[in-house]
Nucleic acid binder design. Structure first.
Length: 717
DNA sequence: GTTAGGG
DNA sequence: CCCTAAC
């Protein structure tokens, strides 16, 4: 859908603003997320490729990594940095073809002040520079801990590095691409944050790649990643001590090191998945949450990866918002019971806001993935892949474009799948954006139209979305059911299966737009962040409101499904229609809350989030509303807002008398300032004149009355 | 629950 | 729009 694109862009745009310089962590977070998103796509491809290779070659990665690493490392470590605990990367680099010298140097240099020295080098030399890489890597390793401290900018500056890190195993391609491109995608930069994580290994690996040493890279990865992993990517962990297998894991390691000090290197192997997951974790961490990631990473089985992806892509935000407390919703519903609790348990994302904010990112990701990357990536929840194919054979996908095409995917999927019983592969190419009702004056500019649409979309997204599963036209609400129980199996025609983005509210749909439609409640919702338990019932209703929204894909006629929901709950929608018809005046509005929330994203999410979460969506008054307000005030006067509300806005639920009072206040102010100073939708001068007149009249009257009151008592006394 | 006003 | 004091 067009909207997708818009959303995508919009998010990006928003994101940017969101980046605040305020906090390192915040910045990191934002950038990190982005990178992750960008990287993910790549990662998938890489993973797929790797997986294929592995399968075909059946090499044993583990050996590779261990061996090579071991010696190199030791030697390296001993020589260069004794201090540094994590020489692994260096090895990688060596293997990669990097010069030991460089490494050593790096190490030496890096060890002492691993944290920050890198930057300069990187920036100067660029990603290609081995030294730079080595430095980075060394730092990373050293750090395991230090990374955290890495300044994002540094990383960002070195897109190449960052990218590498991020993608880790998966990213090989990614990295390569980026390197080639130079900066690579936008995302690359973002990666930087990640870079921290993986940077260590990555730089070198990157270099190799550049050099054309793909094979090496893969090998490394492989080494790290065990063949068996159905997940392909992950190789479970490298037991190598904690030192990261380095190369392969560069990403993973990096993450670990960067994000979680404690995180085990094992994550390396995980590569892409980790990344995704990590990213999430990172987010959390950044936000201040405890880092679950460590646990996850270290502990997580390979399978987790998929889940992560899924979550991230699909749910990430939504989940957070809605589920945080309840792990299952998305994961369960969409994914399946198989999912590991690990992720499902996400920690609380701090705040709803954050989550909201995140959504965009994630969405972005989703979109991207969907459109661009999808091919590669399916998400695997637990064991389920959402690509269209069934695990082994059938490709049931909505999208006409079959997943089967993706070699990478398929191969990975299969391998991964094998490990588990049967898996259902689903491919979600894109999500349709819920229906939005927008009312805008003919005189509005295209720009304002765009903004309005954006706001509406943002509001929806910002409010938090959740994923709805539709099967045979019916919403599947029982999150606890397994796919099998629900009838979603490889044996079935997945075309009957649909996914929808639904508003995830915890509260009521507040806004339903004036009239409207569905809206997104998020703003109103109290839900927030952590553990906010939302009652299913409520949710459903809300959803209903939104129900229109769903949509699923292209080919399949999921569309029908959408409304099915209504049945369960009384839908606001119906009302909407009525309202709309009845109140021509009312706006249908477009809420925008998203912007604000987004802006906040990066940093302080917590506090703000909370606040924002509850804030109502902003619904600018339309000229018609203003006209009605003026008329009512002229008749009733100021100070009787409740009456005004009843008289002129009785049917506008979203307009409280306080709102009307505030609007009047602003109208008076607007009328007094020069037209050039006015913002927003212009209000006819005629109305403003009436505002001033009425205001003067009633003010005068009020004054008189007050005088009377005062005087009277005095007199009486 | 309303108003009024500051933020 | 939110928040709060005051009514």
């Amino acid at each position: 859908m067009v909207l997708q694109k818009r959303l995508y862009y919009s998010f990006n745009g928003y994101q940017v603003p969101t980046k605040r310089r305020a906090t390192r962590s915040a910045r990191r977070n934002a950038t990190f997320q982005r990178r992750l998103e960008d990287n993910q796509m790549c990662a998938f491809d890489l993973l797929a490729t790797v997986a294929d290779n592995l399968l075909q070659e059946k090499q044993n990665p583990t050996t590779y990594s261990d061996r090579s690493m071991g010696k190199d490392r030791d030697g390296f470590v001993k020589e260069e940095c004794q201090n540094a605990n994590k020489p692994l990367k260096t090895e990688l680099s060596d293997e990669a073809s990097c010069d030991r010298r460089c490494q050593h140097e790096f190490v030496k240099e890096g060890c002492p002040d691993a944290n920050k020295p890198l930057k300069p080098e990187l920036s100067d030399e660029g990603s290609t520079d081995r030294k730079g890489f080595s430095n980075i890597s060394s730092q990373v390793y050293n750090q395991n801990c230090c990374l955290k401290e890495f300044p994002i900018h540094e990383i960002e500056g070195h897109s190449g590095i960052a990218s590498i890190v991020t993608s880790s195993s998966c990213s090989e391609k990614f990295v390569a691409e980026k390197l080639v491109d130079g900066k690579g995608q936008n995302g690359t930069e973002n990666l930087a944050s990640k870079v921290e994580l993986g940077s260590s290994g990555s730089p070198e690996s990157i270099g190799c790649k550049l050099d054309g040493d793909v094979s090496k890279v893969k090998d490394v990865k492989f080494g790290k990643v065990p063949m068996d992993t159905g997940t392909g990517l992950c190789c479970s962990e490298d037991p190598l001590d904690e030192k990261p297998a380095a190369l392969i894991s560069s990403c993973g390691n990096a993450k670990l090191s960067g994000y979680d000090d404690s995180i085990p290197h094992s994550s390396l192997s995980k590569g892409c998945d980790n990344m995704l997951v990590d990213s999430r974790d990172d987010d959390e961490n950044f936000s201040g949450c405890a880092h679950p990631s460590n646990k996850i990473k270290s502990t997580r089985p390979i399978t987790c990866i998929d889940d992560r992806k899924i979550k991230k892509r699909l749910a990430s935000k939504y989940h957070k918002a809605a589920q945080e407390s309840k792990p299952d919703k998305l994961s369960n519903s969409v994914l399946d019971g198989n999912l590991k609790p690990v992720y499902s348990n996400r920690k609380n994302y701090y705040k709803s806001q954050r989550s909201q904010m995140n959504i965009p990112f994630k969405k972005r990701k989703l979109f991207k993935c969907g459109s661009d990357t999808n091919s590669n990536g399916y998400i695997r929840s637990g064991d389920t892949y959402f690509s269209l194919k069934n695990e082994t054979n059938q490709s049931v996908s909505y999208s006409s474009s079959g997943m089967s095409k993706d070699h990478g995917t398929s191969s990975l999927g299969h391998s991964a799948l094998r490990s588990r019983d049967s898996h259902v592969k689903l491919r979600i190419k894109s999500f349709r954006v819920p229906e939005l009702l927008i009312e805008i004056p003919e005189t509005a500019t295209i720009g304002s139209l765009k903004r309005t649409v954006m706001e509406a979309v943002t509001a929806v997204l910002g409010g938090g979305l959740r994923v709805g599963v539709i099967l045979h036209g019916k919403k599947v609400r029982d999150d606890s059911k397994t796919l099998l129980q629900t009838g979603i199996s490889h044996d079935n025609h997945l075309d009957a299966l649909g996914f929808a983005l639904e508003p995830n509210f915890s509260q009521n749909l507040p806004p339903a737009c004036a009239t409207s439609s569905l809206r997104i409640p998020s703003a109103d919702m109290p839900q927030p962040f952590i553990g906010y338990p939302s009652s299913p019932a409520v949710i459903h209703q809300r959803i209903q409101g939104f129900s229109n929204t769903l949509a699923e894909h292209q080919a399949t006629g999921l569309g029908n499904l959408v409304e099915s929901d209504h049945d369960s709950a009384p839908s606001p929608i119906n009302t909407l229609g009525e309202k709309i018809l009845s109140d021509s005046k009312e706006l249908i509005t477009v809420p925008e809350m998203g912007m604000e929330a987004l802006a906040v994203l990066p940093g302080h999410q917590k506090s703000k989030r909370t606040e924002i979460a509850q804030r109502r969506i902003r619904r600018p008054f339309s000229v018609a509303e203003v006209e009605a307000l003026v008329q009512a005030v002229e008749k009733l006067g100021t100070g009787r807002w409740r009456d005004v509300k009843l008289r002129a806005f009785d049917n506008a639920k979203h307009r409280t008398y306080v709102d009307l009072k505030d609007k009047w206040k602003t109208l008076v102010h607007t009328a007094r300032i020069s037209p050039q100073q006015r913002r927003g939708e212009p209000v006819p001068q005629e109305l403003l004149d009436r505002v001033l007149t009425a205001h003067a009249y009633w003010s005068q009257l009020q004054t008189k009355q007050q005088l009377k009151h005062h005087s009277k008592p005095c007199l009486l006394l």
